[in-house]
């Protein structure tokens, strides 16, 4: 089993970052994320928490060994998230569905205001990668390769979100300019 952990501070407030999270795809940095579908979405009438279930289809070049083992390069991920607007917390949990008989990848992400600077947003990401017994002596190798790929994707994922944040800021500037002219 391999663990992946990362934190990052986005220099934008939580409201903006949580909006960017919903607008994250598509972006130039993560072409491997091909489709994101909303399966279920509602607001808990008691708590006011937004609950969302999404289906994510990922397709990217993978090492030949993995392609042979897994029989392809397209995979589906299921994600469940909750947004608590009062607590200012967005948490997401996801799990791979394709190839899960060979490798399990569970990921947990939290966005909340940074305690050191409440106008910034702290992003915490953790994942567990576990090859099943089916892979036997390949298990460590597969976990290593998947960890490396996960690490690469985590990096471009952050760049992708930064790109969306810049876009949102540019849109807001444009609205302000129009308002000033009027």
């Amino acid at each position: 089993m391999r663990l992946f952990e990362a934190t990052h501070v986005f220099k934008h407030d939580w409201e903006t970052v949580s909006l960017a999270n919903w607008r994250k795809y598509p972006n130039d940095k993560t072409p491997h994320v091909r489709h994101v579908e909303i399966l279920n979405q509602d607001v808990d009438p008691e708590t006011g928490v937004l609950r969302t279930e999404r289906l994510i289809m990922v397709q990217q070049n993978v090492p030949t060994l993995l392609k042979k083992l897994f029989g392809g390069d397209a995979s589906y991920v299921l994600e469940y998230s909750e947004v608590d607007p009062r607590e200012k917390t967005l948490s997401m949990q996801s799990q791979n569905m394709t190839f899960s008989n060979l490798l399990s990848v569970g990921e947990h992400i939290v966005y909340k205001p940074d305690q050191e600077n409440p106008k910034h947003t702290l992003f915490t990401q953790s994942a567990q990668l576990k090859a099943t017994n089916t892979l036997c002596r390949f298990a460590n190798k597969v976990e290593d390769m998947c960890w490396n790929r996960f690490n690469d994707n985590a990096h471009v994922g952050k760049l992708g979100l930064e790109q969306v944040l810049s876009k949102i800021n540019a849109e807001r500037q444009a609205v302000l300019m129009v308002q000033n002219v009027e």
Partner: peptide, 17 residues
């Protein structure tokens, strides 16, 4: 043919749906 795969994966992510 994705419907069953989705319902099977729900418990692992703590989905309320």
């Amino acid at each position: 043919g994705l419907t069953k795969m989705i319902s099977d994966a729900r418990p692992a992510i703590g989905s309320v749906f």
